[in-house]
Amino acid sequence: MIEVKEDWCKGCNICIERCPVNALEESDHLNRRGVRPPQLKQQNECNYCRLCELLCPDLALTVIPEKEEKKPMKKTNLIPVGGKRR
């Protein structure tokens, strides 16, 4: 996920140009300055390298790595255990 402080963005588009996987695009709405802040593309290819966060001249971007969802897994005992373990 990418968090953008929209009013801090000046629209230099360095984040979009420098993204190694081309995951960002201009959004379709204007901010208070009249520029289009960046947003993630619909098809999310972000690999959380944080290059846009480090290169943003206005410190407006924050990359938050998505936490891996823990799927409920059925655990089967590989070793036969009799009774409760101590």
């Binding site: 801090w8 000046k10 230099c12 360095i14 966060e53 480090l54 001249p57 206005d58 924050t62």
Partner: peptide
Amino acid sequence: TADELNKKYLRDGMWPTIFCNGCGHGVVLE
């Protein structure tokens, strides 16, 4: 994250910066 960094080190009332679009000074600050 940059958001936590901003909260810790930056003065609230001063932002956003006066630098022009595409200027490298903010990057050096970061």
